[in-house]
Amino acid sequence: MADPLLNIAGLNCERGGDPVVVNMSLQLHPGEILHLAGPNGAGKTTLMRALCGLLYADYSRLEWNGMQVSSALEYADELLYIGHRSSVRDRLTVHENLQWLASLNPAASLELLPDLLQQIKLAGYEDELASSLSAGQKRRVALARLQFSPALLWVLDEPFASLDVEGVELLQQWITRFVNEGGSVLYSTHQRVDFPGCHYRRIDMQVQGEAA
């Protein structure tokens, strides 16, 4: 098998002073979907944020694309993190939000925008302020980024939350296509979502200290 895209060992991270991830090892290969499962408080978000460099963490080994790196921020522009907070700016319109999100990565292209707006069912809403959108619509705007980003890894924290059935199906298609093209996805969800035909792996996380 090829080199893992992300290879981490001996990972420890804390949330509010309590250890939530203890001595964890994790490998993620190109073309692989990794599902983080576990009850609330198991540290799924903490782990994801640590892998993106948004949280202090220590590790004995951290490799990106076969290269040793000293901090997650060194590969931050090659991954795409979409967390609980929408990161959609309320005072910008849908179109301006997408432009802003695209500007975060100079390699991103917005050529397919009209088609993308159709796909996320927001055609006709281009000039609406994001503050007037529903939670699900905002999430679609945030997720639309996936289609114009050149990232190698998607880190999606509860991406299916507040999406309707069609939205979930669309995101499933996007993930499947991305993975078939060699991308990697790390996501968490409490919903039942399958990816038939994909290289799918699941990690069950436990609340630390509960077992003892």
Binding site: C52, G53, L54, L73, A76, D77, L79, Y81, G83, H84, R85, S86, S87, V88, R89, D90, L101, S103, L104, N105, P106, A107
Partner: peptide, 12 residues
């Protein structure tokens, strides 16, 4: 709103 963390992660 998590805007700053996206800025931090971006290529700019």
């Amino acid at each position: 709103q998590g805007v700053l963390e996206q800025m931090e992660l971006s290529a700019v």
